[in-house]
Design a binder for these strands. Sequence first.
DNA 1: CTTTGTAGTGTGAATATTCACTCACATAAA
DNA 2: TTTATGTGAGTGAATATTCACACTACAAAG
Lengths: 195, 195
Amino acid sequence: MSTEITERQQEIINVSLALITESGIQSLTIKNLAKRIGFAESAIYRHYENKIQILLAILDFFKRNTEQLFSNQLNSNENALVRIEKLFVTHFRKFANTPSLVAVIFSEEIFRNEKELSTKVAEIMNLNIASLTTIIKDGQQKGEIRNDIEASHLATMILGSLRMFVKQWSMSNYSFNLEKKGNELSNSIKTLLVP
Amino acid sequence: MSTEITERQQEIINVSLALITESGIQSLTIKNLAKRIGFAESAIYRHYENKIQILLAILDFFKRNTEQLFSNQLNSNENALVRIEKLFVTHFRKFANTPSLVAVIFSEEIFRNEKELSTKVAEIMNLNIASLTTIIKDGQQKGEIRNDIEASHLATMILGSLRMFVKQWSMSNYSFNLEKKGNELSNSIKTLLVP
DNA sequence: CTTTGTAGTGTGAATATTCACTCACATAAA
DNA sequence: TTTATGTGAGTGAATATTCACACTACAAAG
């Protein structure tokens, strides 16, 4: 039901993401959306009740994309260091291929007004931190990750590093190769985590 | 000259910060500003040419506040680990006392439209990363910080951890004691950095 | 001491623009 | 006939900004 999505709805989300990538969340207006699709503005409302629903759909897209990366590693039984490395690699690949996701990450302040939106943002982040913490605890028990630091602290640091790195990339106008440089960062993190 | 600021201008900035703290950057409108001061909207323009200038002044306030924390440690000659610890402690204290700064940190996406603003944001962040990198390199040379990881990576991780932690705090509606919990995180970071 | 000019500050009304959203109507397919 | 989809015109609210006008403090000129 609620997960089913029509072709037009998908198109609206795709165009939304394109607009966000090009000029930020601020440029995501009904007018711009309709213009890009080749639509009248009023036609949008045949497919989404209001703009909030579109933003929620975008957050859903974001959620599905990142959540999957975490759960993939959550359900793997490789060495925890490898799992965390893969977390980095897959994230950087995803962001490099879908830069709109980056704009979404850092648009949380814009979602702050609408309760439904800010709740969803918090929900996504808490879920990701929880998954990561689980992976770390598991690695600590198996002796794959150093045991002298609280798992939640390590999770904060790892996720924080990831975000900060992506932020640096976006602030440099995507001037370096995220995947390649990201690998180096990932190796540094691994070195820190090793017991 | 340009750094001189009148009483009214200071009042406008103070009220701006209060508005941002209470309900986010989105609520910083000329109307709200004027209402809170007890002003006509038009009176604002006697003191600032336009809204952009107000936002720039806010960023300046932010810049002065954080820059100082970095340069204090930059010019100290204590053990690098202690300097980094102090960086954490002073940041957390500052954020706890001036929560509007948190909203400013995470409002970068909103500043993205105006070139002048986004440039300033990038400038602030690059400066902070550079200061931190200098401190780390110094510590590495003196054998106070582990040498097997690139200083720039460590800087990304440290700053990323700091931001992520503050984000978690703000997302929890400031439900925990930032300074106290921040101390624990700071200790974990120190443990990671030690050679 | 008084007049006059001026700079600084505040006001209320008006402006243009942008925004999300509505609605009566049209059309085509099933 | 019904359902889904699209349209064009319009609405009201919010936004930043402008402008002619008014008041005050104060210093220079008479």
